[in-house]
């Protein structure tokens, strides 16, 4: 029993070091991080079978939160249960947390330096561009017919012109989805719920950032 416990702690430590390293090096993780996880965990350590990476992608992508953190939770849970998941998530969050704090302190120190303000304005503009790219990518994967196009347009209009809280949109989306698919089936239309795998694969290979 004692020996088993020692082994357990070893796995937790390994999980910690691995995700601590992966956190900052993949810069934000997202889908780019999945390749890194695959390399480390499937190829080098053989902790997961190649097929389980597919499960990881679908769980991490469909649960709320960032793909990187979710993947860490998945791997940690598979290897060492709930404690493993906690350790992996803690390890992947810690480096970025510290970096954010340092950035914030630096930001406050140099708040009044005009050139720092200028640099931040430049970054602001770049972040707008990255958001547009993210919108384009997820739009390409999600808008596949007229109903989905309508849902996307209506949600933007609601957000722009009403004080509606976005949680109602998040809740309404699945309801609308189920209803639309049901109606489509009754009408005998093709009720595809996902784009062709080929498209999704292309999206995965494309560098995703911060998502």
């Amino acid at each position: 029993m004692k020996a088993w416990k020692k082994e357990d702690i070893k796995v937790l430590l390994q999980l910690f070091t691995l995700f601590f390293k992966l956190g900052p090096s993949t810069f934000g993780g997202g889908y780019a991080m999945i390749a890194a996880i695959e390399r480390e965990i499937v190829n080098k350590k053989a902790w997961l079978k190649p097929g389980e990476i597919g499960d990881m992608v679908s769980v991490a992508g469909s649960a709320p939160g960032g793909v990187a953190v979710n993947s860490a939770a998945f791997v940690g849970y598979k290897l060492a249960g709930v404690l493993g998941a906690v350790v992996a998530v803690f390890a992947i969050t810690l480096p970025t947390f510290l970096i954010v704090l340092i950035l914030s302190i630096l930001g406050m120190l140099f708040q009044d330096v005009p050139k720092v303000q200028a640099a931040l304005k430049g970054v602001h503009a770049a972040v707008v561009a990255l958001i547009i790219v993210a919108a384009y990518k997820i739009g390409r994967a999600s808008i596949m017919d007229i109903p989905t196009l309508l849902i996307a347009c209506i949600s933007v209009l609601l957000l722009l012109f009403t004080p509606l809280h976005s949680i109602y949109l998040i809740l309404g989306g699945p309801v609308a989805g189920v209803a639309i698919i049901a109606v489509k089936k009754v009408l005998g239309l093709s009720a595809q719920t996902e784009k062709q795998v080929k498209d999704q694969q292309a999206d995965l290979n494309y560098l995703e950032y911060y998502i």
Binding site: I170, G177, A179
Partner: peptide
Amino acid sequence: SSFYGLRPI
């Protein structure tokens, strides 16, 4: 179906 509706949101 739920994700079909959620993704455009």
